[in-house]
Write a protein that binds this DNA or RNA. Structure first.
Lengths: 173, 173
DNA sequence: AATAACTTTCATTTATTATTGAAAGTTCAG
DNA sequence: CTGAACTTTCAATAATAAATGAAAGTTATT
């Protein structure tokens, strides 16, 4: 009985990690990175690199690089245990915070550069025929649309970063 | 002078197509698919497969498969010119419509299956220690969070699909 | 029913991206 | 300063995903 329960938990955990990894792949996030994140999300304790390697059957280099990437994204943190040299890792577990961090990073890395290009190409001067007029019109629309969407992200971040509203957020929780 | 202007347009168009393609890659959409879409977005006329192949320097098979994929996503349509056998393609150019279609497809293909997994794994019965309790707690939170986000998409679609609100949308435009 | 004008399929090839692991780098205790 | 404990880097390799193109499939016309 106990044995069966144990298996069920391990199965569930594995299933979650694998699905989350697959989902990551479909969203342009490296599979291992998503899996490490998934593992840390459902693990109460912080994990060492060794433990991550063992749980996911990955190499030291892979673990190191993807943990670094997750920290660059600001969704995984290092912790230390007193008297130990080893580094331990924990995931951001607040989902609102997680969503904001991810949006923020994607905005910075992908949307902002795309906006720059859209601005550039849409500012083509003196369109000289129907084809060029349509190009300018369409890229301008796109620039405005993407800009508006991105602005929403900025506004949310701004709101969150404001101490007063943070207090407010805490109060209404 | 005219020559230089022409170059500038071609450059801008190429730049747009390449950037859009790169962006697609980062969001888990095949580069060519994003490029074809970009090309059709900024082209006023509908294009034949031959024309798409020539503009993007891609093979017939590649063009065929990605045009099909874009049609499956509902963001590119076939049109016919009278007296011609050939198929021509146009992109959905309304950006609200485009955003909705993309959200809808991603929800159907990725979020809904992820929800199914989350529901399954979070329903682990009789968690027997701190570790298992945390797993259930965390996956349940995730299930609710993702579910809520997905629901927003559904609501928007529902709203759009309603003929009355469509009329309303048109009236306020 | 034969042909011409197209489009789709899919086994093979090519390009891209992720992973490994051993060597180099870092940090700290003694 | 040295060495042990640990992490990072990166050239080589493996795994995955995308692209090709020729053959098969489809459809309209005569």
């Amino acid at each position: 009985m106990l044995y069966i329960c144990g298996m069920e938990f391990k199965e569930a955990k594995l299933k979650f990690i694998e699905s989350w990894g697959a989902l990551g792949g479909q969203w342009g996030i490296n599979k291992t990175m998503a899996q490490i994140h998934a593992l840390l999300m459902v693990t109460d304790e912080s994990l060492s690199m060794e433990e991550v390697m063992a749980e996911l059957n990955i190499s030291r280099g892979n673990a190191s690089m993807n943990l670094r990437a997750l920290m660059d994204w600001g969704i995984v943190y290092k912790t230390y245990k007193s008297g130990e040299r080893k580094e331990y890792f924990v995931a951001e577990k607040d989902l609102n915070e997680l969503a904001i961090k991810i949006s923020q990073e994607r905005s910075k890395r992908e949307i902002k550069p795309a906006l720059k290009v859209l601005k550039e190409v849409s500012s083509l001067k003196n369109p000289k025929n129907k084809e060029e007029v349509h190009f300018v019109k369409q890229t301008t629309k796109l620039y405005k649309f993407v800009g508006k969407a991105d602005n929403v992200i900025d506004k949310i971040i701004e709101y969150k970063d404001n101490w007063l509203s943070q207090l407010f957020t805490k109060l209404i929780k």
